[in-house]
Design a protein around this nucleic acid. Structure first.
Length: 639
RNA sequence: GCUGGCGUAGCUCAACGGCAGAGCAGCUGAUUUGUAAUCAGCAGGUUGUAGGUUCAAAUCCUAUCGCCAGCUCCA
């Protein structure tokens, strides 16, 4: 029996017999029991893996990122074992880990009920308690196919047929076996802190045309306390849910008479308009011109733009005087008519048309959600018409503008995706290649990291999407920048170049907030309903201590209103503590307490949302402070 | 659209085949109050909607609308 040399973390190395197990090396190195696997020359392996050659080993601890991932994967297996022991005849398919947990898809005629979920969870604890050894075995793919075919696991057979490798690995725990690459925890006893969190239907291989499987979601953690912390986090996320806050803060509501279409109450409308006002100020600085375009167009336009072919199923139509009209789902075709309303010179370009027009898109009933996915909305939409050689400069400015906006709202975590040519597309291949390259180059030049999303572009051009996350960590696309060589062609747009000849302009579709509705929903969750001063629906609430200060308080209120602040006066006959509490729950940035002292000294006593009491000061001084705060937050000079 | 779950007072929830109830909010009155809830009284409902089963339905069944989670989709 030969020897092999194993390098260990920290520069140490040991010599062991060829064929020694990773676990044994760990024991010799004096590593305690909380490692679940190891990396052998960088590849994750089980503790039971035999070492056959010189190599380097790193330990994977249970509480490390890799360790937790292995734990969750093993928990998915444990669940599948529990399910199959409780419900024979249920087939297994796939069971990957996801952020915070795992799922496993089963083929079973009957869906799992919540009660069955409890039973499964109980059985899982039972099996984990037996501390079954988890073992790996390798075999030729054909042998594995035989095994699963005999077991009646049709889906596993199908998966195996698609695996390119000739050797596959199986994992056993007790009498249960699954096809898996691994690695896994050494025994089921390691799995202690888990919870099944939900059931849902899911299509086999994610395709709507395939049959539906029964998916069970779960979460799993190294310790009970980590699990508890996670469940508490979920609970807190619920309190941030914009649908809940929208109701509590009286921002908006929904009604079955208009499904998936928000009613913005006065306070919600104040925020909504605040967002638009903010964008308008930016437009002034960045050279945009606002336009207003029709709501309903002859379908001829939608045929010409290509939207009819691609999206007629999600458009609203109306027939009047034997003419067919379509409600606009996008502003862009409308803008081409303004462009084409006169002869354009290269001197006019770039032309930047902004439009807050209301759009309607029929979204399938199962996909709508609060403000984040609605059927009626508007965007901070704009279309830039420019010469091809202006694309680069426009992209640079756009990315700068985008950064300014997202810094203002303190969205620091964002995922950028470059989406390329889809299966259904318009135009020629080399135009697409050129456009995709232009976008990639501009991202690289700005040093923005991005993920490639092949085949996910719009039908008329590639796009860059900017995704941010809601309270439950679900990603939502807000900003988007799209290059379009098709629309100008379809609508015959031209400009006269210095050479005197007519050339075709390029169109850049872009929205920074994206849908105002969606942006507002995400923003509510981001700030937990505590809007920055400049956006808060009520910026200042004036609270009287007793009736004796009513007259003075009304004067203060009027002064604030006259200066343009959104202020409310609470002169009710209630105790100050009660009024403070209400102002706090309404998340009003500033409460102004007015008692006899303030009246006598002609001041107001500001209290910041959150509890900080500021020194009493004259109203004028207080307003000066507000102005400074707004200017700083919106990166503008004080008015 | 698909799978599952849920719809009771403005809100949060109880009653789970046998008289629809509580807290908060609302209204009225008392209290005149200094930094997160003063007290008392009153009012509030075709239990989402439409059918059905039953002596009797919020409760069981069917359909439908809406909401929630997930899947698919997202110009």
């Amino acid at each position: 029996m030969g020897k092999v040399r194993v390098e260990l973390p920290g520069g140490k190395s040991v010599e062991v017999d060829r064929g020694a197990l990773v676990r044994e090396v760990a024991a010799r190195a004096g590593i305690d029991g909380d490692i679940v696997a190891a990396k052998l020359d960088g590849a994750a392996v089980d503790l039971s893996r035999a070492i056959e050659r010189d190599c380097a080993l790193e330990w994977i601890r249970l509480d490390s990122e890799d360790g937790i991932d292995i734990l969750r994967h093993s928990t998915a297996h444990l669940m599948a074992q529990a399910v199959q022991s409780l419900y024979p005849g249920t087939q297994v398919t796939i069971g990957p880990t996801i952020e915070h947990g795992f799922y496993y898809d089963f083929k079973r005629d009957k869906p799992f009920s919540p009660e069955e979920l409890e039973k499964i969870e109980a059985r899982m604890h039972e099996i984990a308690g037996k501390d079954l050894k988890v073992t790996r075995e390798e075999m030729p793919r054909s042998a594995a196919i035989d095994i699963f075919r005999r077991m009646g696991e049709d889906y596993k057979v199908e998966i195996l047929k698609d695996i390119p490798e000739e050797t596959v690995s199986l994992y056993r725990q007790g009498d249960w076996v699954d096809l898996c690459r691994g690695p896994h925890v050494p025994s089921t006893g390691v799995i202690k802190a888990f919870k099944l969190t939900g059931v849902a239907g899911a299509y086999w291989r994610g395709d709507e045309k395939n049959e539906m499987l029964q998916r069970i979601y779960g979460t799993s953690w190294p310790t009970e306390s980590a699990l508890k912390d996670y469940l508490k986090l979920l609970e807190e996320a619920k309190n941030r849910d914009h649908r809940r806050l929208g109701k509590e803060l009286d921002l908006f509501s929904f009604h079955p008479v208009a499904p998936a279409s928000p009613f913005f109450h006065p306070k919600g409308a104040a925020v909504y308009n605040g967002l638009i006002t903010y964008m308008r100020r930016l437009y002034a600085r960045y050279g945009y011109q606002e336009v207003i375009t029709p709501q309903i167009f002859d379908v001829e336009l939608w045929h010409r733009s290509g939207h009819y072919d691609h999206f007629r199923d999600s458009m609203y139509f109306s027939r009047i005087e034997d003419r067919e009209f379509g409600v606009k789902p996008m502003n862009c075709p409308g803008h081409t008519y303004i462009y084409a309303s006169k002869k354009r010179s290269y001197r006019d370009l770039p032309l930047r048309y902004a439009d807050f027009g209301r759009l309607h898109r029929y979204e399938k009933s199962g996909v709508t959600a609060g403000l984040t996915r609605v059927r009626s909305f508007s965007q901070d939409d704009a279309h830039i018409f420019c010469a091809p050689d202006q694309i680069e400069a426009e992209m640079t400015t756009l990315l700068k503008m985008l950064r300014e906006v997202y810094r203002t709202f303190e969205f620091n975590e964002m995922q950028v995706k470059l989406s390329t040519r889809p299966e259904k597309y318009l135009g020629s291949l080399d135009v697409w290649a050129h456009a995709e390259d232009a976008l990639a180059q501009s991202l690289k030049r700005e040093g923005i990291e991005y993920k490639l999303n092949p085949g996910d572009g719009a039908f008329y051009g590639p796009k860059i999407d900017f995704e941010v996350f809601d309270a439950l960590r679900r990603g939502w696309q807000l900003a988007t920048i799209q290059l379009d060589f098709q629309m100008p062609e379809r609508f015959g747009l031209m400009y006269v170049a210095p050479d005197g000849a007519e050339h075709r302009p390029v169109m850049i579709h872009r929205a920074l907030l994206g849908s105002i509705e969606r942006f507002m929903g995400i923003l509510i969750e981001h700030c937990a309903g505590a809007f920055p001063l400049w956006l808060a629906p009520v910026q200042v609430k004036i609270l009287t201590v007793t009736d004796a200060q009513k007259d003075y308080a009304r004067g203060v209120h009027e002064e604030l209103i006259a200066a343009g602040w959104r202020a409310e006066l609470d002169e009710r006959n209630e105790k100050l503590g009660y009024k403070i509490r209400e102002a706090q729950l309404e998340k009003v940035p500033y409460a102004l307490v007015i008692g006899d002292r303030e009246v006598k000294e002609s001041t107001v006593a500001p209290r910041r949302r959150g509890g900080e009491n500021l020194k009493a000061a004259p109203v004028k001084e207080f307003m000066e402070m507000l102005r400074t705060e707004v200017a700083q937050a919106t990166h503008e000079r004080p008015a």
